[in-house]
Design a protein around this nucleic acid. Structure first.
Lengths: 221, 221
DNA sequence: TTTTATTTGTTCCTATTTTCACAAAAAGTA
DNA sequence: TACTTTTTGTGAAAATAGGAACAAATAAAA
């Protein structure tokens, strides 16, 4: 039974994506059906959490049996929207940017970067992984032209805000930002920050507070 | 007044790191004192949240005035532990790995990768950003030898678990994992997964559920 | 057919996180 | 000195997320 109005938390969405990836792997390994207990062993998620995450979107399992993997993969692809083709643009083809352009973790899962932009004349015109690098001057118009909806920002932090503004002007509705700055964006645009320095500092915090800290919800004495 | 026993959430730690970075930038811009309201405008955090996050560790502000930036930077560096030198090892010098080796977002903030390993004979011996790439065969012993405590895994997913095991055998206590797999690690080791495909799928979820979704805590109709 | 085993979907409860709101402190002003 | 303004630090309330537990559904066994 589909719910009237449900708030889906970001944590739930992250987990859905995690489920999908692991279900695909299981299917490849020949598994046909799986129960929430088994999922729980594989991922770091309680069985109840798994069932509840799915329950926001419908009933996909069979009581006493489990979940048919093929069916669940399709449902999750549908929920996340990864079965549709979303045009993705990358801005900033530096070392991180070119790694992203060729990242198998994207391409393997139907996430293909289709346009790339840089300011460096020496890079413009080059082709990386089938994508021709274009002049960032033309960013807004090209984004409009191609109807791109998702942008990855891997520029230096100083220019990230300007790039974001231009992307949004071009009609971008979702941004994944690798630049270590907090971008100002309108309410109707979604942003996720991949902040590697913060993540690494989080690891260091744990080490630095060792003994004073409990493993999951950190206890400080 | 320091608390007896306080649980620090991961979200709080992430924000501390975010505060630190932005305070450093503000200091560079010549700002000396800042209040929680101003921080709130700059970052996407409520003033109360900022004050409460800090309050777990002590009283660093002055009522009616705000926070002296220099002081707060030092306190945060101390809390996070980033003023100490932590030895960091990177495993897997592919495209992402070499981008990480040269990533300014790390080096600028006193986060220096000091050892790097790969399995590819052609890469072993090469020097990237002052770091000599070593043979992954010797990973465990070298980690022990050097007393490394933090490891970054940027290998293909198939070998990530084995690398994690070897790191832990060598005495690593904190891992930042870029491989798209859920690693099994003991309780006393801290791990953070940087899962770019999940992040990108989260953006796509938002686009795919547009209209049905409210901007912050996603409303699905 | 009836009974027993499982395992889901969901309700209700608990724990955690965030926000509110205000007393306490600081500094300036009259 | 007394009053005003500002802004912190924090206890209490509100909101959110997570987990236990159980009825309902399924399939297999008796």
């Amino acid at each position: 039974m589909r719910k009237e109005k449900v708030y889906i938390s970001q944590e739930t969405v992250k987990r859905l994506s995690l489920y999908l990836r692991n279900l695909r792997r299981l299917e490849k390994e020949g598994v046909r059906v799986i129960c929430s207990d088994r999922i729980s062993e594989l991922l770091d998620v309680s069985p109840a959490q798994f069932r509840k995450d799915l329950s926001y979107f419908g009933e996909f399992g069979k009581r006493g049996v489990g979940y048919e993997i093929r069916r669940l993969i399709e449902e999750l692809e549908d929920i996340l929207g990864v079965n549709k083709q979303w045009k993705i643009v990358l801005i900033g083809v530096g070392r991180l940017g070119s790694a992203l352009l060729r990242f198998e973790g994207f391409s393997k899962f139907n996430l293909k970067i289709e346009l790339a932009f840089d300011i460096d004349k020496r890079k413009i015109g080059k082709v990386i992984n089938g994508v021709k690098i274009e002049d960032v001057q033309r960013l807004t118009e090209r984004v409009k032209e191609e109807g791109v909806k998702v942008g990855l920002i891997s520029t230096p932090p100083q220019v990230a805000q300007e790039i974001a503004d231009r992307l949004i002007e071009g009609g971008i509705k979702g941004i994944m930002n690798f630049a270590p700055v907090t971008l100002k964006i309108p309410e109707d645009v979604f942003i996720t920050n991949v902040d590697m320095a913060c993540e690494l500092e989080r690891v260091i915090f744990f080490l630095n507070n060792e003994g004073k800290v409990k493993t999951d919800s950190k206890l400080l004495s």
